[in-house]
Amino acid sequence: MDNKKLNILPVPTFGWLKVNYEERENENDNERRVTKLNCSDGEKTRLEINESAAQRYELEVKGGQSVEVIEFITAKRADTQTAIKLESGARARLIQVITGTERTINNVRAFLSDGAELEYISLNIGGEDTLSDINARLDGRGARFEADIGYKVSNEGKLDINLLAEHFGKRTETRINASGVLSEKADKTFKGTIDFKNGAVGAKGKEKEDVLLLDETVRNRTVPLILCAEEDVEGSHGASIGRIDERQLFYMRSRGLDEQTIYKLAARARLDMVIRRIDDEQTNARIRQILGGNDDE
């Protein structure tokens, strides 16, 4: 079976770091099943993706309408595409929870017209080999993209996320927050790119990642890119990787907590930052159930 390149970094860098792309066997040569999502204004659509088949979901949101889609990806070998087109002033919220999968290839493509808003929330918990490729194209003036990504990778799990926000329109905005926790030979790569194209006057982009490493067997790669071909933009990224700050540890110890408890709390806090944005009781209850078995405080 052929290999194909996935999660390609928009601007490649030193080859020895092995972050330019991922290669996987091309398993799904069969035809992709396409589902058009007909969501009404204000509607919430839930998708259970539990079949190991190539799927494609297409969502078009008319001007001024607002929809929410929740994808629970639990298929053993998932290969999912979600294509979103937001007309002027449309709003969408896409929540993806990827859990318990053996291999996931997840692909999200979004096109945002004038004033459109996309909120992307993703939680990666317990997948063995997960590749997520997310591309938001901010074409329209004033379009806005927010991404909150949480992950918990352990037990030799591998997670590679490649997120690209392309700013074409004037006064477009992106905010990316990623936070997570790694343990037990976890191998995670987060590639987040903010790309200001020429003409994206007044665009703003902000990216942040906060990674908690819990033992010496983990590997974390953080690759935050800013590409800029426009003068009048503001872009920034920040990353914090490692253990809990000594001063924080001291403070929490002085409040009577032992180190193990402090790390459990800190790990959960990183996921909770994303979970609390989900704002859907049914989804949150399921996530709590999944997480509860592992690190119930």
Binding site: V11, L17, R221, T222, V223, L225, I226, S240, I241, G242
Partner: peptide, 25 residues
């Protein structure tokens, strides 16, 4: 044109790594 392409590859938990970048006019 101005691009920023940093990579941090961390293989131990007992490290403290920070990164900040800004671009603008």
């Amino acid at each position: 044109r101005s691009d920023t392409v940093p990579v941090m590859d961390i293989k131990t938990d007992k490290a403290d790594i920070g990164h900040e970048a800004k671009i603008g006019r």
